[in-house]
């Protein structure tokens, strides 16, 4: 049953991306209205999928690569709705929808079986830690898309620059919450709040890159392309923290494969 909702979400997510892209070329309002309708459907469909899986598994479905990718795609969809309502920049929405689709597409390739939680993950911190991390990741993904557009555009856009900055501020706050909650959780599970595990180290590196972004803007007045490059580097570090560390190193987060 939950698989049906996942497939439905994939379909409407895809339709939403097509209509956002279409609205770039056709002036007809129906394109953007349908795109918005479809992305709302995608967010609802993923919420229902997560809800059903939660009930079936008797635990929050936030424990492996498949489950985290679905939550990632869900968070991205929520951000697209927010971006659409607030800024209405179609090219950001279309490309962000593509990012969400990539996450869902990758999830579709993975094992969907519900496995029981290992003792280390059976904690109330699981929901808070994973949700804050992925809300942060989603915000930073949208910021990456905005930065990419800044890099490809010939003329400078103050608006895009501001949007990117605001999203990075939000993403940075949630990344901080994610790292802190992970640290407190580690201390209550193992008695050590920081053990330089590869996931911890790379999340700290990512955090520092975005901290440099925020300071470069404030102190050195970096704007436009210069700042956008930092945002892209930060996003690559984030991707490495999420995927690279999971597949290349073994450590405390090895179950996230």
């Amino acid at each position: 049953m939950s698989v049906a909702y996942l497939n439905f979400s994939f379909g409407v997510y895809f339709a939403s991306m097509i209509f956002y892209a279409g609205s770039l070329f056709f002036k007809n309002k129906i394109f953007s209205i349908l795109a918005r309708f479809f992305i709302i459907c995608a967010a609802l469909g993923l919420s229902i999928h997560i809800g059903i899986r939660w009930q079936a598994a008797l635990r929050p479905p936030l424990s492996n690569m498949f489950e985290s990718l679905v939550v990632f795609a869900w968070a991205i969809a929520v951000f697209i709705i927010f971006m659409d309502l607030k800024y209405k920049i179609k090219v950001i929405n279309a490309l962000t929808a593509l990012m969400g689709l990539l996450a869902l597409g990758y999830a579709a390739l993975l094992d969907k079986e519900i496995a029981p939680l290992m003792p280390a993950l059976r904690s109330n911190w699981l929901t808070f830690h994973v949700l804050t991390c992925f809300i942060g990741y989603a915000a930073l993904t949208v910021a990456f898309v905005a930065s990419l557009i800044i890099l490809f555009k010939k003329e400078a856009s103050q608006n895009l620059d501001n949007i990117s900055h605001k999203l990075i501020a939000l993403g940075f706050l949630f990344l901080t919450l994610g790292i802190i909650s992970g640290s407190v959780w580690a201390n209550s599970a193992w008695g050590t709040y920081w053990s330089w595990d590869p996931k911890e180290t790379w999340s700290l590196i990512t955090w520092f890159i975005y901290a440099i972004y925020l300071h470069a803007r404030l102190r050195k007045g970096w704007r436009g392309k210069k700042a956008a490059w930092l945002s892209v580097i930060g996003f690559l570090a984030m991707l490495f923290t999420y995927f690279g560390v999971s597949y290349l190193f073994s450590g405390l987060h090895s179950y996230s494969q």
Binding site: A169, L170, F172, L173, T176, L177, I180, S183, V184, N187, W190, G191, T192, Y193
Partner: peptide, 26 residues
């Protein structure tokens, strides 16, 4: 694992201040 670490409450206080500080800045 037996642990007695008097630094932990200090670190947790730092965590709370960091979150409050970031929310105030942004």
């Amino acid at each position: 694992q037996v642990v007695r670490d008097p630094g932990v409450p200090v670190i947790y206080a730092g965590f709370i201040l960091l979150i409050v500080g970031l929310v105030m800045i942004f």
